[in-house]
Design a protein around this nucleic acid. Structure first.
Length: 543
DNA sequence: TCTGGGGTCCTTGCTCTT
DNA sequence: TCTGAAGAGCAAGGACCC
């Protein structure tokens, strides 16, 4: 057994059911109840399920449709990234108080190097080291709980690999310290799936050669693993199975690529709509790149067909760009071929994506390429409405019945137009055609600046289209002049059901209001979260 | 009513350059 | 001048993570 450190001085901190836990904190009536955060649309998937919901067999990445069948009485909420970001910043801040070496993996997870907090006597024996690690980790957990109300599971070990697995071992609210020297003994009984990087495909291949546990994996030679998994992965799995991992905690990991994608509530069949959606994505990507101050040389697009056939195409330019005109021209050069390949068997585009990689920190001014791209973009403006361009064999188009969802003439509204209906805890609302949903204020700041971590599951499109349609989505924060703060429990035509309660109140009452009620407005979830966190800090301060 | 969105890393096959 | 080997760079796809 090899291990570089003599003390368990790497912590892996993981907030339990993070999104769902923040929702339960903010919505007192949901505490202790099954809560599912994710895409609420027809093609949504679960992002996070509270532990109460997991009892029903609901877990992340499960299709929301299946989740609704398994847990019909759970609350289904869209993610409020502004709020999660605010909580994440507080937790990351507490970790930085402890160590300058914090490596965030996502909003709710980070590695922490605490070696500098060990005195010589703490590393004299494995037992003393373990005691000290437990002490530090315990204190951090207490601080997180006091500052945010959230529970964190922490693993402490002599390597990142083992610390990560340890934090998962006693979730939720767990603290597992793996004594230096005992790593192998601790890893051996675990299923291979517990190892970082072993997913369903690898687990199946390993099963076929007789390894379902780490101990069994360790009986395989490096050559056998290389033969089955390839040189790089085979060798690294050979090392991982032996707990060999000397990676440092690295606080500044560089961003390698930026991309955006959307899955549509209904497949796109009309080439003009596909082109328009691609333009919309390119604009989104451009603004993300500019905000991040990055540009990239390689432009990639992704097309997923109705049958899930996924095709990607990429082009690498001489210099980096963040210019939507340049990106758009490249995307449109690749799009017809990619669409043809993805829809060969079954027509219909289910998902479109565009991204850049080979990032640089600035955009090289390439006037020549830009002029060329602009000229091409102009041509596309005229051409991309012609369905004949969309068939590789020139037979023309995949049909054009599609587009009912695209009636508004604004591509932004076109996707995920499906079911935005509410949390299952809401009462059934009578449909009243006289009360068509109308304008409420736009919500700002729902989208976090994402340097890392998961993104809104099948929801971004739904949120955007809801904003444009002035509809309410379950989970959104609202404020009413008369009734005060609350959140959307569900909505029907022209009506919205709100539960009036706040993170600092007791469980509140439900009221059904008219959607056009002037006194009702959406509130930025980040503001609500910061308010809740400040109140928690104020409560802590005197003691 | 099955399967989101943003990432990273790896493998394979191909082309180009030296 | 031709040819082959090796390596770099690119393109496409797959697996995995949260």
């Amino acid at each position: 057994m090899e291990h570089v450190r003599s003390a368990p001085s790497i912590l892996h901190v993981d907030l339990d059911a993070f999104y769902a836990s923040v929702e339960q904190l903010h919505k007192p009536s949901l505490r202790g109840k099954p809560v599912i955060v994710g895409g609420v649309g027809v093609r949504g998937v679960v992002s996070t399920a509270s532990y109460e919901a997991r009892v029903f067999g609901v877990h992340s990445a499960l299709a929301t449709g299946i989740a609704r069948r398994r847990a019909p009485n759970a609350a289904y909420l869209i993610p409020r990234f502004g709020a999660y970001q605010a909580y994440s910043e507080v937790v990351m801040g507490l970790m930085h108080d402890l160590s300058p070496l914090v490596e965030p993996l996502s909003l709710d997870e980070a590695f922490l190097d605490i070696a500098h907090l060990f005195e010589p006597e703490d590393v004299a024996t494995p037992e003393a080291g373990s005691r000290r690690a437990r002490e530090i980790a315990g204190e951090l957990r207490d601080r997180i709980k006091a500052a945010t109300g959230l529970t964190a599971s922490v693993g402490a070990a002599s390597s990142k690999l083992v610390a990560k697995i340890a934090s998962d071992a006693e979730k939720p609210d767990g603290l597992v310290v793996v004594r230096p020297g005992a790593e192998q003994e601790w890893l051996d009984p675990l299923p291979v799936r517990a190892l970082w990087g072993v997913g369903p495909a690898t687990a199946e291949r390993l099963r076929k050669i007789g390894a379902t546990t780490v101990a069994e994996l360790r009986t395989l030679s490096r050559q056998e693993l290389v033969a089955v998994l390839g040189a790089s992965y085979g060798a690294s799995l050979y090392a991982i199975a032996r707990g060999m991992d000397d990676r440092d905690v690295s606080p500044d990991r560089e961003l390698k690529s930026v991309s955006v994608e959307d899955t549509f509530a209904e497949d796109l069949l009309d080439p003009a709509t596909v082109a328009a959606e691609m333009d919309r994505l390119v604009n989104r990507l451009g603004s993300r790149l500019r905000k991040a101050g990055r540009s990239g040389r390689t432009i990639s697009i992704k097309v997923r067909g109705h049958d899930f056939t996924t095709v990607s195409r990429s082009e690498t330019a001489v210099g980096p760009t963040d210019d939507p005109v340049v990106i758009r021209a490249a995307a449109h050069r690749m799009l017809p071929g990619a669409v043809a390949a993805a829809t060969q068997a079954v027509p219909g585009v289910r998902l479109l994506g565009v991204g850049v990689s080979s990032l640089a920190e600035w955009a090289q001014l390439d006037l020549f390429a830009e002029a060329e791209a602009e000229a091409e973009a102009e041509m596309l403006d005229e051409d991309d409405l012609d369905p004949r361009l969309w068939s590789d064999d020139g037979e023309g188009g995949e049909g054009s019945e599609e587009g009912e969802a695209h009636n508004a003439g604004d591509a932004d509204d076109a996707h995920n137009a499906g079911d935005a209906d509410g949390a299952a805890v809401a009462e059934e609302l009578p449909l009243d055609p006289a009360h068509i949903a109308t304008p409420v204020h736009t919500v700002e700041g729902e989208r976090s600046p994402r340097q890392f971590g998961p993104l809104p599951p099948g929801t971004r499109g739904a949120v955007e289209s809801a904003r444009a349609d002035r509809r309410f989505l379950p989970g959104q924060d609202v404020e009413h002049d008369e009734h005060g703060p609350g959140w959307v429990q569900g909505s029907g035509l022209g009506r919205v059901t709100v539960r009036f309660e706040s993170p600092w109140s007791g469980p509140g009452r439900i009221k059904t209001l008219r959607a056009e009620d002037e006194a009702l407005r959406l509130v930025d979830s980040a503001v609500v979260a910061r308010d809740a966190l400040e109140r928690a800090a104020a409560r802590e301060a005197p003691s």
